[in-house]
Nucleic acid binder design. Structure first.
Length: 219
DNA sequence: GCGACAG
DNA sequence: ATCTTGTCGC
């Protein structure tokens, strides 16, 4: 069975409409560092026709993993640049709903505002879960990079700053933009607070989703 | 028209 | 993302 049908013009226009509506729901409200204790990382891995979303909660005070949850199913949508939310958001949300502990900040593997319609995967997760969320991507989808100031450079779209590219001293750069309830101007202070290295909680979510999808069968 | 294009 | 061994470097 081919995924070709998903490229249908009417379907994509419909999804674009949904993205435009979700984009209007985003609140770029300031996020106080005092409210950041439990940080949750979200990622999805694929293997042999299965997909697994993993949620990992990291207690930023105790510096330890508090809880982990996973959700396995069959991928129901292909990867189409600009429409990643259709492929991964449903799985991430199922995984999030399994958690018992609360989350103060969600880190999603993908872009937030740094998206053609300001409606990346992280925006969907943030708005639908109504929680402070940041999109953390490993490569750029759209936008231009401004001048570096230390380890950070702004991501600019249509003359508007939508996030930052972060260049850790030893590792590769990654891209951070708001998903929901975080102001663009708060990103730097948040990163300096939780660390500018690629987030441990996302590395963990990546490992766990990968390990899970390779060993467990779908019920 | 041609290339670029999160995971 | 995934298919995949060894290998360069701290």
């Amino acid at each position: 069975m081919s995924y070709k049908i998903f490229y249908d013009k009417a379907t994509l226009n419909f999804l674009i409409k949904i993205q435009e509506i979700i984009a209007k729901c985003v609140k770029l409200t300031p996020l106080s560092l005092k409210n950041i204790e439990n940080i949750c990382g979200l990622d999805v891995a694929y293997s042999d026709g299965k997909a697994c979303a993993a949620s990992v909660i990291w207690n930023n005070c105790k510096k330890e993993i508090l809880e982990v949850s996973t959700y396995i199913t069959q991928p129901s949508f292909p990867y189409i640049p600009g429409f990643l939310f259709m492929r991964e958001a449903p799985l991430m949300i199922e995984s999030l709903n399994k958690l018992k502990n609360t989350q103060d900040l969600l880190l999603v593997d993908g872009h937030g505002l740094a998206h053609p319609r300001k409606a990346g995967l992280a925006v969907f997760i943030g708005v639908l879960m109504d929680k402070p969320t940041l999109g953390v991507a490993k490569s750029l989808l759209i936008g231009k990079i401004g001048e570096y100031n230390g380890n950070f450079a702004p991501i600019v779209i249509n003359g508007l700053k939508v996030g930052y590219v972060v260049k850790p001293n030893r590792s590769k750069p990654y891209y951070v933009s708001p998903g929901h309830k975080v102001a663009v101007g708060d990103i730097l202070k948040i990163l300096k607070y939780i660390g500018i290295e690629y987030p441990i909680v996302l590395k963990e979510a990546h490992k766990i989703s990968k390990k899970c999808v390779r060993k467990i069968e779908i019920d």
